[in-house]
Amino acid sequence: MPVWDEVLRLTHWAVVLLLGLCWFSAEQGEMAWHQTFAYLLLAVLLTRLSWGLYRSGTARLRTLF
Rank of each mutant, 00 (worst) to 15 (best):
G20K: 01
T36Y: 00
P2C: 03
E30D: 14
R48P: 01
L19W: 02
L18S: 10
L40H: 07
L45V: 12
V7G: 00
A26D: 01
L19I: 00
W13M: 06
L61S: 05
T47R: 04
L49S: 04
L10E: 15
F65E: 04
L19H: 07
L18M: 07
T11I: 12
T63L: 03
E30N: 10
H34Y: 00
T36M: 06
L19A: 07
F37I: 02
H12W: 05
E30T: 01
L18Q: 13
A32D: 06
E6K: 11
R60G: 07
E6Q: 12
V7F: 08
Y39H: 13
L19M: 09
G20T: 02
E27V: 09
L61E: 01
G57K: 05
L45H: 10
T11V: 14
Y54H: 13
M1V: 06
W23L: 11
A38W: 00
R48K: 13
T36S: 05
W23T: 13
S56E: 10
Y54F: 15
L19K: 11
R9Q: 12
T63W: 03
T58C: 13
L53E: 10
A26R: 04
H12Q: 14
V7K: 10
R60T: 13
Q35Y: 07
W51N: 10
T36K: 00
E30P: 01
V15A: 14
T36G: 00
A43Y: 00
C22N: 04
R9T: 09
Q35F: 08
F65A: 11
G52F: 06
L41S: 06
Y54V: 10
A32G: 00
C22D: 03
S50Y: 08
S56T: 10
L49D: 02
A38P: 01
V16A: 10
T47Q: 08
C22A: 06
L19T: 09
T58H: 14
L17V: 06
Y54T: 12
S25D: 04
S50G: 01
M31R: 07
L45R: 08
S25A: 12
T58N: 15
T58M: 13
W33Q: 00
R55E: 12
Y39K: 11
R62C: 05
C22Y: 01
S56L: 05
Y54N: 07
S25I: 03
A32R: 00
M31P: 00
R9H: 12
W4T: 15
V7C: 07
A32M: 06
R55K: 14
L17Q: 07
L10I: 09
R60K: 15
V3K: 15
A59N: 12
A32K: 00
L41M: 13
L61R: 03
L49K: 03
V16K: 13
A26V: 05
V7A: 10
V44W: 11
W51Y: 15
L64C: 11
L45C: 15
G57I: 04
L40P: 04
M1W: 05
A59D: 13
F37Q: 03
T11F: 09
